[in-house]
Design a protein around this nucleic acid. Structure first.
Lengths: 171, 171
DNA sequence: GATGAAATATGTGGTCC
DNA sequence: GGACCACATATTTCATC
């Protein structure tokens, strides 16, 4: 289901361009990749069907929406049982302040990325949506100075997959 | 520059719909919002110019691209001076494994979200791109079991902004 | 903010390799 | 089987009110 998909150079070129600007038209894609627009449409349709492309997302500026303060909340949910974890996840996902949620290994079970209007709203959020709950054993709040999105996501370079002589001895 | 923008109900409705599916056509937006397609175009254009909409992003499935393992790396950059921090940020942003990068308050200066093929590649990444650098004082790696994107980002509800009687005494 | 016409993009079927 | 072309449809964009 989550198997890696074989991608040829045309697919990769299209993905790179679309990651720069997801609204690039098939006409422009075609011109830059060197194939016909219909071929681009074909490729993108297949990439969507094969699950490589999950969808298109709008990137918004939280600050312009009156949510100028972002933070990461590390949360311990204890006991870490499914009957407590599943409702916790659903509750956090439904919070208007939550942007994204990670379930992690390590001493902190969850990391929650939130955007709020300011420190007062953050304090209220921590107290009301987190520490007020019995299953939330601990919350650690870190403010975000700045965030960067990184380069385009592409398959690991084939060169990096060169087999090593002996497993566990190549590093 | 990062001031909050005044948004009317039509703007908010459009943003909500576009956050569900960023490829909704102006025609469909218009039908659902109850205005003309050209008005939707107008609104979206203004939202882009005012900086509320930063852009459109392709959501890809890292697992299908042969990057089935994701992790968060907490990194201390010491000394935490601009002449070390700025090149660090640029170097991390250029890593093909990096998805996103946070500069934070707290004992850990940076959080790096990475996607790799597997544990071996993660180990190589930590050793070669992080701990090999003199300015990287500490790295802590946590694996990501699962990630969720949360509900649409919208301005804080006006009701939540009701002024309190006394600052610092309302919670 | 709406209308409608022009420009542009998208989707389809036939054809070729 | 995949890529390309040309055509038909749908969408976006813009001038005008």
């Amino acid at each position: 289901m989550a198997d890696s998909v074989a991608l040829d150079p045309v697919d990769l070129h299209i993905l790179r361009l679309l990651q720069n600007d997801a609204r690039t038209t098939y006409r422009d894609l075609a011109a830059q990749v060197g194939v016909a627009p219909s071929t681009c449409l074909d490729r993108v349709t297949r990439l969507r069907r094969s699950g490589v492309i999950l969808g298109h997302q709008l990137r918004l500026d939280p600050a312009r929406l009156g949510r100028g303060l972002q933070a990461l909340l590390s949360v311990q949910v204890r006991p870490h049982r499914r009957d407590l974890v599943v409702p916790f996840v659903e509750r956090i996902r439904a919070l208007p302040e939550a942007l994204s949620l990670f379930h992690l290994t390590g001493p902190d079970d969850f990391l929650v990325h939130v955007a709020v209007a300011g420190p007062a709203e953050l304090q209220r959020l921590v107290l009301d949506a987190f520490t007020a709950r019995r299953e939330v054993a601990r919350v650690e709040t870190r403010l975000i100075f700045q965030q960067w999105e990184c380069g385009p996501l592409l398959p690991p370079d084939a060169a990096a997959d060169v087999p090593r002589d002996a497993v566990g001895e190549s590093w």
